[in-house]
Design a protein around this nucleic acid. Structure first.
Lengths: 204, 204
DNA sequence: AAACATAATGAACACTGTTCATAATAATCA
DNA sequence: TGATTATTATGAACAGTGTTCATTATGTTT
């Protein structure tokens, strides 16, 4: 009978529900407030049940990481379609920082946590979405180097330099370490630094 | 009698022993492996005793942060005495990254953790050592701007840009996120990016 | 020796991730 | 329909975590 299909569907639905609840708790209580037991409590199942649908907590964090990239892509979409490579780099940087500042919990899971990376190492998976992001960045750098004749710049090094810069800026902001810089408007300060980073590369 | 002095000395000694043990565990098992109960076990006291010497775990992490800055200063000492501001910035950057790469556990506590910052917030303390570091960096930027006539650059923005860049680079390296960049020698890659960051600012 | 102050602790509370034998439910077969 | 099998769920336990507090032990002073 087709009942086996229904069962599979039900199984997938509960898996979805677990992830949906995990996301809800992440947004309400942050990464440290997210626990297997809270998820179980919320969906009214035993904690042990979670382990019938996910190998361990790392796997759940990995799935959340993938959800985070979906959200991040929304922030980046308009930047990706920009034609001029220099302008595109600027828009990518701005979107990246905005996403990070506005979504600490997602950002921590995607770019600061060991757990989802360990899950990938265990399952011999690749960091597809991070890879895609970095490849697109590298490609844009290549275009920019060609168009603006930035001789002596390696595309990989330039991409990594840009990523490091915005990643560092986001992290300093998210961990309250920008507070030591005397400045009235923090948002303005971040924008100034970001502008300086990008300008820096293109001035000859 | 002078016995009260001895008691105070003994109290300070046990406090020292707790911190020394905390450091030992941090180096052996990392930040996640460090627990009050492990410290208590190691010094052969009850976990509750720790709370007679420290308000909570955050305070211990804060003390460890200060110890971390001592270690970091050793890495930076030679850079701080460099005369030429541009060369000094280069040496500071190199020392900072080297320290971070070689001391993940210290780095996490000093620059990535919320806990020691929260402790400072609770006690209305300042982040003195971080402040001192950033002030020196800003001062060096000012000197460099003057000497090399880098017009249009703000010293605070420049300092923050440099800090963000090396901070981001260290964090990407420490969380295994540099693995996605095709490169044989990771150490070499890091040096190339670091060089590019610094060169970037000084080319006109 | 008795009174007092200080220091140390055992036990508890409320959590965490994870495992596994057992129990409940659903699907299939005779 | 009733018995058998496969799936799904769980209670309880293990080994941890930070933290608090009433009680006990220790050392000092009168």
């Amino acid at each position: 009978m087709g009942s086996s299909e229904r069962k599979e569907r039900e199984k997938a639905e509960l898996k979805e529900q677990i992830l949906h609840t995990a996301k809800k708790i992440l947004l309400k209580s942050g990464k440290n407030g997210l626990s297997i037991r809270k998820i179980a409590n919320e969906i009214e199942y035993s904690p042990a049940t979670i382990y019938l649908y996910f190998k361990d907590k790392d796997e759940i964090l990995h799935e959340l990481m993938e959800m985070g990239f979906m959200l991040k892509n929304k922030y980046m979409a308009h930047a990706y379609s920009e034609k001029d490579p220099a302008q595109r780099l600027y828009e990518i940087g701005k979107a990246y920082v905005t996403f990070g500042i506005q979504n600490k919990d997602w950002y921590d899971i995607m770019f600061n946590s060991d757990e989802p990376m360990q899950h990938m190492a265990k399952c011999r998976e690749d960091w597809d979405q991070g890879m895609a992001m970095f490849n697109f960045l590298t490609m844009t750098c290549r275009e920019a180097i060609q168009k603006y004749e930035l001789s002596g710049l390696d595309e990989s090094v330039m991409a990594l330099q840009l990523w490091s810069s915005v990643h560092g800026l986001v992290n300093l902001a998210l961990t309250q370490r920008l507070d030591i810089v005397e400045h009235t408007d923090k948002q303005e300060l971040i924008e100034k630094v970001l502008n300086s980073m990008l300008k820096c590369i293109f001035k000859k």
